[in-house]
Each structure stands twice: as structure tokens, then as C-alpha cells.
Amino acid sequence: LETLTSTLPSASPQEQKQMLGERLFSLIQAVQPTLAGKITGMLLEINNSELLRMLESPEFLLSKVDEAVAVLQAH
């Protein structure tokens, strides 16, 4: 995560989302294997500082994953 936070500011917006997406996906895949791609896609619409908070706090990430699953099921 330290590598990510130090690399992120010098990356393009597209690259920033890509890097955050890779990290988020690997974490989300552990709890939601079938929906991980869509959940990650949804969460990437959130601003990067919030996404970094999710990577730093598993509890925060899981609460956002739960929200995303609820939205997906309602969709």
C-alpha cells in the first residue's frame, strides 16, 4: 500500500484507477468471487482518497462491498 500511495500521485487518472482497481479486486474477490468485477467497477466511481481509505481499512471496504452488492441486486 505504501508503494501505491507513493506511485499514485505521478500516475494519470486512468492509471490511478487501474492501480486502485487491481488492489480492490484482489481483496473483493476473496469475499465476493462472482461479483468482484462489477463491485470493483462500481467502487472505482468513488474518488481516489476514499478508495485509499478502503484499502487501509478492511472493515470500511467490507461495508462498501455490502452496499455495492445491495445496489447490484436491486439493479
Binding site: K17, Q18, G21, E22, L24, F25, G37, G41, L44, L72
Partner: peptide, 22 residues
Amino acid sequence: GSSINWPPEFHPGVPWKGLQNI
């Protein structure tokens, strides 16, 4: 428009296209 393709799905190792419309 149709929201049937929402949300964009992220695939590891594949460039994410979700920002194209921003």
C-alpha cells in the same frame, strides 16, 4: 439511455474503461 451495461466490470490485468465517459 440504457443502464443495462452498468456497472462497468473490472478485469484484473485489463485496462479499465470506466473513465471513458468522464
